[in-house]
């Protein structure tokens, strides 16, 4: 997909369902400044979804899709889990992989896209749950990082297997009792952010999705660093309100409680030296771009 391809043939325009007309007219494809603030004022790339009412994962999806730098040139790779219920609804190319295989699929995809579209930047973003990323797919996750594959891995960490009724996962906290893990977890939560850093990821963030502006920043950083340098990893807490005994309105508070300085989702970030240089360069360019826009605006007014 590219921007010029998101056009409806004029003779067919009136028969297209309204949401497609809206997608062409009011979505933010091609807008360099797109971000979470577009939510509510432009057509989102995800609207209806089949997640539970109040699920923080739906918030996370909305912020991430609103923050992708180039959705028209992005392919997302998903895996089995709650996220796979959402992907059929999104306005972005996506592939559903076999459970745990997402980073292997993304590797082949990224390489193929690089060969097929040499003059064009194509972003690949993996988005999977903690079961796919840390348990079943850990091999594929790590091998992709060891090989320095240039794509972003996002893990929606809800600390258990949610859509199969609450089994224990590697990212579950020690001692937690779930519906299908009645004895309680006997070992510590796997320290995947630290493992990611040691495995060669150039940008690693561990946080919740309670703050949309923060999610926008980390998504953009992760994707730009993956494009230019190498693998990046984001571990985002998206609690399963059903499995931890909360109701629909309590997801946001649960995330806020879990990101306090002493808690397990306190904001943690690792940036390699190479990535730091890139981010500094990007910030300088962005500053220059804004200054130029301001100058142009002033000259028009004059």
């Amino acid at each position: 997909m590219s921007l010029e391809r998101i056009k409806i043939a004029p003779e067919m325009y009136e028969i297209m369902p309204p949401e497609y007309q809206d997608l062409v007219k009011n979505a933010t494809y091609g807008n360099e400044n797109r971000g979470w603030k577009d939510i509510g004022t432009s057509k989102e790339l995800i609207e209806e979804h089949s997640l539970c009412a109040g699920c923080p994962e739906s918030m996370a999806f909305r912020y991430i899709l609103a923050s992708l730098p180039a959705p028209e040139d992005t392919v997302m790779v998903g895996s089995t889990g709650c996220t796979s219920l959402v992907f059929p609804h999104v306005g972005i190319h996506n592939i559903h992989s076999l459970f745990g295989n997402q980073n292997a699929i993304a590797t082949g995809l990224k390489r193929a896209l690089t060969v097929r579209f040499p003059g064009r930047i194509k972003d690949v973003v993996v988005l999977a749950g903690d079961g796919a990323t840390v348990d079943i797919g850990l091999d594929m996750t790590l091998q992709a990082w060891f090989r320095q594959e240039k794509f972003t891995t996002i893990c929606f960490d809800n600390e258990l297997y949610a859509n199969t009724g609450g089994q224990e996962s590697g990212l579950m906290q020690k001692g937690f009792v779930a519906k299908m893990a009645p004895v309680g977890k006997t070992f510590e939560k796997v320290r995947l952010p630290e493992i990611a850093r040691e495995s060669g990821c150039h940008y690693v963030v561990n946080c919740t999705v309670s703050k949309p502006n923060l999610i926008e920043k980390v998504i953009k950083n992760a994707i730009h660093i993956a494009r230019e340098i190498g693998p990046t990893y984001l571990q985002l807490y998206t609690p399963c309100i059903l499995e931890i005994g909360k109701n629909s309105m309590e997801g946001l508070q649960e995330m806020r409680d879990s990101e306090k300085p002493t808690e397990r989702f306190a904001y943690r970030e690792y940036i390699s030296d190479q990535a730091k240089e890139l981010l500094t360069e990007m910030a300088a360019k962005e500053k220059e771009r804004k200054a130029e826009a301001k100058r142009q605006l002033a000259s028009v007014k004059a």
């Binding site: 391809r5 998101i6 056009k7 409806i8 043939a9 004029p10 003779e11 067919m12 297209m16």
Partner: peptide, 22 residues
């Protein structure tokens, strides 16, 4: 039932086909 290859104006050929289908 026109599919994506004629509904979307991918290129000139697709646009011609859309006209023909209409």
């Amino acid at each position: 039932f026109p599919g994506p290859l004629v509904l979307w104006a991918w290129n000139e050929k697709a646009a011609h086909k859309a006209t023909a289908v209409r």
